[in-house]
Amino acid sequence: MYDIYALARGPFAWGAFIIFFGGIIYRLVTTVMEARKKDHVVFDYFSPYYAMRSMLHWIVPFGSTSMRRQPVLTIVTFAFHICLIGVPLFLFAHVILVKESFDISWWTLSGMAAQVMSLIVILSCVYFFIRRLVQPDVRYLSATTDYLMILLVAAPFITGFWAARAWAGFEVATLLHMLSGELLLALIPFTKLSHMFFFPLTRAYAGSEFGAVRHAKDW
């Protein structure tokens, strides 16, 4: 087991980060190149002002009519995303790892806050999962991969929470935490989780078309 642990800490972690960043760059570059060839309108009508206007309305909670119409989903979605990004970036244990390897560090969350936020991620995943199962339109839209994606995202948080609480078997939990986190990172660029970096692109385009060409709001 120690061997796997070493692997997870060393080569797998490197691999995951390389695939994660490399994958994002690859997807973005190929998308932009393809857009240059086949979707020139994206550049022709691009307007920084309207792109920003649109993005602002959609990253501020309840900034759009759509979000206001579905308040519960909106609250959960925002809480989920904030915690999902905040915990891994500002977790003390993570920052220490970075410090050990690269001697750089930054502000960290208190242990308690990190645990609460992880719990929010887990509970949000439960909510998303159940919502997918029971809300007819969303159920209709969902493919197996949509359910798997939720599990994939929840896994590092469940195992991380487990390890942090030092519950029975936390060594295994720690290992699973590292492996599932690495798997998640590596898969982001190549699954629908890529919406993380496609969001600004599609939003900027919609905002530019609506604002600069059609003189209308898009929220």
């Binding site: 086949k38 994206v42 579905q70 339109d137 839209l141 629908k192 969001f199």
Partner: peptide
Amino acid sequence: EGGARFKAYLNTCMSCGYCSEACHFY
């Protein structure tokens, strides 16, 4: 003709159902 927009739309849709309520057909 299935360029970057086409692919980005298909790959980015999270099947979240936010759009459902917008459509008069639905």
